[in-house]
Nucleic acid binder design. Structure first.
Lengths: 151, 151
DNA sequence: TTCGGTGCAAAGGGTTTGCATTCAC
DNA sequence: GTGAATGCAAACCCTTTGCACCGAA
């Protein structure tokens, strides 16, 4: 279906296929639909958002597939302050970015921080992690504030 | 009891008293015990940790009080990846810091990042937030890696 | 035919809430 | 004495799991 490629580049699908295959998982129609939805969204999606993009699919199927996609490093799950999760494509399939979170309504928006900042930060964090006996993997930065509607 | 002051400076209690009073809340014995426990810990505490510091207190009382302390900006609640919360004293009562999170076992450790880094970062983030129509409040940085035991 | 994916319903687990009781000012 | 705080148990909500069924290789 050509419709896919409008939102999500085919090399993303190729990468997903590969990541799934290396874990003996198939790239089924529903998983493809989830990747499409997440790849086409500019912010992380809730389980309800995803159910809307995959009408008629049971919640349990959505959760099961999201868990598999998460295990295969295709999807990241983010816990929000209200105790429910939101989902996005993992950074290896998208762009390194951070979240702008509204302190009042919980809205989450993606933002990209200049590479120069990122780089300097990581250099420091590797050292700090080592000092605590940790092996650095990556960082995660949230900017907390009030969104336009709430401020 | 003098034991309190060993762990938590009396000016912290003064500040808490004030913050609670401004919201018409009392600084009860249990709330004091929670502040003591959180102030004396070097990392965020789980609800079970807190129940251990306040033996015999019902979970519902702990949650109710933590919610009130959170509303009065005395306590911060952090959602972990397993869907449960951990608690710490809010930064206005402690020191600005970040979290080193073990990707495997979920261990959370407090770390302090050099002021120079923090300052430069905030300057950028204020701008980025504004561009999205947000009013910047603060940032939150997690360093993800593997702890000594898991790596 | 076989194994993985699905729907449905039930179970789980952390957190919140209702209500009667107890406590502190 | 009055409103707030507590304990207990039930309710909640998001998420996971069990199981029978379906569908693709």
């Amino acid at each position: 279906m050509a419709r896919s490629s409008v939102v999500v580049a085919s090399d993303v699908h190729d990468a997903v296929t590969e990541q799934l295959r290396s874990r003996q998982q198939r790239y089924t129609a529903l998983r493809r639909k989830l990747v499409e939805a997440l790849g086409g969204a500019k912010d992380p999606l809730t389980i309800n958002d995803l159910q809307r993009s995959a009408k008629g699919v049971a919640l349990s199927s959505l959760y099961r597939n999201l868990t598999i996609l998460e295990e295969c490093a295709v999807v990241s799950r983010i816990m929000t302050s209200n105790g429910s999760a939101i989902f996005e494509l993992s950074e290896s399939l998208s762009e390194h970015h951070h979240h702008l979170v509204c302190a009042r309504c919980g809205l989450v928006r993606d933002i990209v921080v200049p590479e120069s900042i990122e780089h300097g930060l990581d250099k420091q964090l590797v050292k700090l992690a080592r000092k605590e006996g940790f092996t650095f993997q990556h960082h995660q930065l949230d900017v907390i504030g009030l969104c336009g509607k709430c401020s």
